[in-house]
Design a protein around this nucleic acid. Structure first.
Lengths: 213, 213
DNA sequence: TAGATTGTTAATCGATTAACAATC
DNA sequence: TAGATTGTTAATCGATTAACAATC
């Protein structure tokens, strides 16, 4: 059923948003919804909704619409949120520790199994459920524990070194908060970048240019 | 010179990346660069580089290329990073406080002038240079202090209320970390969303589907 | 059955890439 | 001048939207 012949990134990036809206509707007790209605709520076209969903299968019923909870579950499955990919956090600074405490990894397909820092002050500190480990032990840990993904919250200057060590230890997926282009160095890595300052600069640009329509 | 007739979002979102690479090159003492060379480093096409830059003006010199520092300065100007937009942070939880401490707002076109929370425990706490204020005083503060932008680090359930109050106090630009669709409620607002869990879900999807090329 | 709404094909729109004349 | 590289137009590609036949 899943016609998985390479879905475009544009579609993939919209999936979490569908998931979010469908979860809310489901929580509100809505049973079924038409593409037109869903499109209205989400502020997109009905065509796009149907086109997007049909990349993965025919989840609707003609003349009726889509089952809200059914569709939500399908998208959850498509996204793979039932996985428990084993992830490590690198860098227990302000930002890293906020991520560790703030995000519900289990709901998002991951388990956060460890956290590393090289700052002696931080090693041994408690970070929610985790104890900050010495970055020295990074390689051995990742190999023994079969780590799937790493969350990079280290400064720009440390990222290359850390990245090489992780890659050598078999880690191929990265959630990257540093300003470094991983995919240039390791083309086979799966990389998701979150460039906060890029985002803020974009806001700045748009504020500058918003009064001139 | 700036032909500012509505630049597409795709181009705008690439500007910070140019800025980042050009800044690095400039720090490394590189004087000039051709679109071909820059494209190589950034892993894009030379056509795209030239096309993008020419949205804003002819910054290059035929037969020679672009001045690295000159081009970096132009992009800085285009992004408006010399602004000091007055921003407030709403929500001094893990994530909000990390943002406040971690980011160099002044380099990004903003000044962080205050921080609000409604949790009595947090009010009065020190957050870098700022003291956490009582959210009660939000409206009066924003009006008196002419606040341009708000950074929303509050939970999904509080965001609608906070948003309405900010909007009523004249704030029209939002850096939004909560899972709420601001632009549906206020179409004239300038909104930059950072949906961390969407990003992590996308990583999960891609990990699932990466071994099948 | 009649009405509604999907799944899917075709048309449109926009963004990316290629090509090349202009020019330093 | 000859070589290099831009700025810009034209061609291609992909993504979005519109339309409608299939079908519940």
């Amino acid at each position: 059923m899943p016609k998985n012949d390479s879905i475009s990134m544009s579609v993939i990036r919209r999936l979490p948003r569908y998931y979010r809206f469908l979860s809310e509707l489901s929580d509100q007790g809505v049973d079924k919804i038409s593409s037109t209605k869903l499109a209205q709520i989400m502020n997109v076209t009905a065509s796009q909704v149907r086109q997007d969903l049909n990349c993965f299968g025919g989840f609707g019923q003609q003349g009726y619409g889509y089952s809200v909870s059914g569709l939500r579950d399908e998208i959850k499955r498509i996204l793979g949120l039932n996985n428990r990919y084993r992830a490590v956090l690198i860098g227990a600074g302000n930002f890293g520790s906020a991520i560790a405490k703030y995000l519900d990894f289990e709901r998002l397909g991951f388990t956060l199994v460890a956290c590393f820092d090289r700052d002696e002050q931080k090693i041994g500190e408690q970070l929610g459920e985790l104890t900050v480990r010495d970055a020295e032990s990074l390689e051995s840990f990742c190999e023994e524990e079969h780590i799937d993904a790493a969350i990079l919250c280290v400064p720009r200057t440390s990222v290359e070194g850390v990245l090489d060590r992780l890659y050598a230890s078999g880690v191929r997926s990265f959630w990257n908060f540093s300003h470094y282009d991983i995919s240039t160095r390791y083309p086979d890595a799966v990389v998701e970048n979150v460039h906060l300052s890029d985002s803020l600069m974009t806001l700045c640009y748009r504020m500058n240019n918003s009064n001139q329509e």
